Computed example of a mutant assay.
Amino acid sequence: MLPDLADLLADAHVVALPMRVRFRGITTREAVVLRGPSGWTEFSPFVEYDDAEAAAWLRAAVDFGWTDHEPTAGSVPVNATVPAIVADDVADLLRRYPGCTTAKVKVAEPGTTVDDDVARVAAVRRAMGPDAAVRVDANGLWSVDQAAAALERLAPFDLQYAEQPCATVPELAALRDRIDGLGVRIAADESVRKATDPLAVARAGAADVLVVKAQPLGGVTAARRVIAEAGLPCVVSSALDTSVGLGMGAFLAAAAMSPGYAAGLGTAVMFTGDVTTAPLLPVEGRVPVRRVEVSPELLARYAASPERSAWWRERVARVHALLAAAG
């Protein structure tokens, strides 16, 4: 049931967390953390998303904060995340992910070249060794031709998969056929979390792996249904959440993620601050599955400006009205 707006905002806090490096075009991550009867939860759709797209994120916040989800494991394995940094900085960054044996490497960043991508992936492989699992993520920024050419150069590094190399489901299907025999599997992310039909990519045979995120899919309950119906291996990842949102993802990963894969839930490393004194940082390559308690001191330290706080509260109110109207 959708709580009243007053109940939703009764203990809500807008924060702006500074990041170590630019990621996804931002250096500060804004989010709303709010407390429901089951614990702290999070609403943090990216600022460019419209209210209709943000509605799933608010459903997720309500699902986690107003439902007593039970943890089904003590911890889950996570990957290191390597932004589009220069190759010389890779080894230092990976030290922030102790025990991780999987790395996701950003590629196709605007302003960089395929040569930069190759050098970055090569540096990850050197630092982590031959037994590590290495993934690349293009965020849908390549054309089919560009993806085919880039993956041909990256394939010798023994990729676990290439995440969202192209933007659309037809492009992913065409690329998958084109690189057949190259030994690189295709994973879909945006084609799942931003689609009106998150299972369309699976039905089209356009991907080998699905990347699922709790908030964009409407929460732990809704995402578990998607995973159950997909019929493909699934990897749970974060949407650059605070540790509160990472806790939501960890509950999902423990309950529904395919064995043999590391979740993309180690991203608390990318922030220089958080909302809790016990952030979900990787330890021995894993993060715990638990609800996070926030720190009043840290909420105050990282509070967004009054203008940004008002913007987010107005956004919550608009999205809440959409959900209420939809029943």
Rank of each mutant, 00 (worst) to 15 (best):
G129F: 03
R95H: 14
V90A: 07
A138R: 06
S238P: 09
E314A: 15
L175S: 00
A214F: 06
A60H: 04
A268Y: 06
K194Q: 14
W40P: 00
G111S: 08
L175W: 02
R20A: 13
V319M: 05
A80T: 10
A149W: 02
V82I: 15
W40R: 00
F23R: 14
G129S: 06
Y49T: 08
A317L: 02
A278I: 03
A84E: 13
V287N: 08
R126W: 08
A52Q: 14
K106S: 10
A268V: 09
P45W: 03
L265F: 05
A324T: 07
A200K: 05
K213R: 13
P110V: 12
R176F: 03
T72Q: 14
A222H: 11
A87V: 12
A228T: 13
R318K: 12
A324F: 01
T102M: 09
V226C: 10
H320F: 05
A255D: 12
R291W: 00
G218K: 07
A223S: 15
S309Q: 15
G99I: 09
L210I: 14
R178P: 00
R313G: 00
A187G: 12
D208W: 08
S305G: 15
G183A: 07
V283Q: 12
V32A: 06
M1D: 08
D189W: 07
A230T: 13
S191I: 05
T267P: 02
A250N: 04
W142I: 04
L252A: 07
C166S: 00
P296R: 04
G264H: 08
A254T: 05
M1G: 11
R125Q: 12
P77T: 02
S44M: 14
D145C: 01
W312T: 06
A278N: 09
V121T: 11
L240F: 13
V32W: 03
D7H: 06
G249V: 07
A150L: 08
A254H: 02
D116E: 14
L9D: 05
R20F: 13
K213S: 11
M128F: 11
G231R: 10
L323A: 03
K213H: 12
F251M: 07
